[in-house]
Amino acid sequence: MNHDRYDDDYILDILKTVKVIAMVGASPDPSRPSNSVMLYLQQSGYKVIPVNPGQAGKTINGATVAASLADIDEPVDMVEVFRASDYLPKVVEEALALRHTPKVIWSQLGVRDDSAAALAEQAGVKVVMNRCPAIEIPRLLGGPAH
């Protein structure tokens, strides 16, 4: 798939079908984008499970933090990646190793690795890179902007 541009219907389908999101790189700091995006997703009706080994067992925006994707004890529909592009291949590998493979791997603005995306897509996982769901939700579904 060409990740330079996404069809609106592709993004819309993801936003409408995803219910549980694991956010890798979630931060407890309210000034960090991952924190505000997590809160926006929660307010938009998604269950968000923060993943951050340094914060494991604590809470971020009321949700208990998992140390890794493997530590989440329920299936997740989407893995949202708030880590640098260099970490994307490792996150994809961890996601694909889960007992219940997520339907989507979504990397945040500025985060892209085409080989990691190809690996996920070969496993049947949809990929969105260099986009923010907190921008796409109001653009495609309406509602308040982030």
Rank of each mutant, 00 (worst) to 15 (best):
residue 72 I to V: 11
residue 146 H to C: 03
residue 80 E to A: 13
residue 92 V to W: 00
residue 4 D to Y: 12
residue 11 I to E: 06
residue 97 A to E: 11
residue 122 Q to R: 15
residue 92 V to C: 04
residue 6 Y to G: 08
residue 49 I to S: 12
residue 1 M to Y: 13
residue 127 V to D: 04
residue 25 G to I: 00
residue 119 L to Q: 15
residue 144 P to S: 13
residue 85 S to P: 01
residue 108 Q to H: 12
residue 121 E to R: 06
residue 113 D to K: 11
residue 78 M to G: 04
residue 119 L to A: 15
residue 87 Y to Q: 05
residue 45 G to T: 04
residue 53 P to Y: 10
residue 95 A to H: 05
residue 103 K to I: 02
residue 19 K to S: 11
residue 20 V to H: 14
residue 5 R to N: 14
residue 74 E to D: 06
residue 104 V to K: 02
residue 90 K to P: 03
residue 16 K to S: 14
residue 3 H to W: 14
residue 104 V to R: 01
residue 141 L to H: 13
residue 35 N to S: 09
residue 124 G to C: 11
residue 69 L to T: 07
residue 113 D to E: 11
residue 9 D to G: 12
residue 18 V to P: 01
residue 21 I to S: 03
residue 98 L to D: 09
residue 3 H to L: 14
residue 112 R to E: 12
residue 4 D to G: 15
residue 36 S to P: 02
residue 39 L to F: 09
residue 7 D to I: 09
residue 63 A to K: 08
residue 67 A to K: 04
residue 93 E to H: 04
residue 61 N to K: 15
residue 113 D to V: 06
residue 127 V to F: 09
residue 6 Y to K: 09
residue 87 Y to R: 00
residue 119 L to F: 10
residue 72 I to Y: 10
residue 25 G to P: 04
residue 108 Q to A: 11
residue 22 A to P: 14
residue 119 L to E: 12
residue 23 M to N: 13
residue 21 I to A: 04
residue 37 V to F: 14
residue 88 L to S: 07
residue 9 D to Q: 13
residue 92 V to N: 05
residue 112 R to T: 11
residue 105 I to S: 11
residue 109 L to K: 02
residue 144 P to E: 13
residue 69 L to E: 02
residue 133 P to W: 04
residue 6 Y to F: 10
residue 114 D to R: 14
residue 92 V to K: 05
residue 67 A to Q: 05
residue 39 L to N: 12
residue 56 A to V: 15
residue 73 D to G: 04
residue 96 L to G: 01
residue 114 D to V: 13
residue 99 R to D: 08
residue 21 I to V: 10
residue 105 I to A: 10
residue 123 A to R: 15
residue 77 D to G: 06
residue 57 G to Y: 14
residue 25 G to C: 01
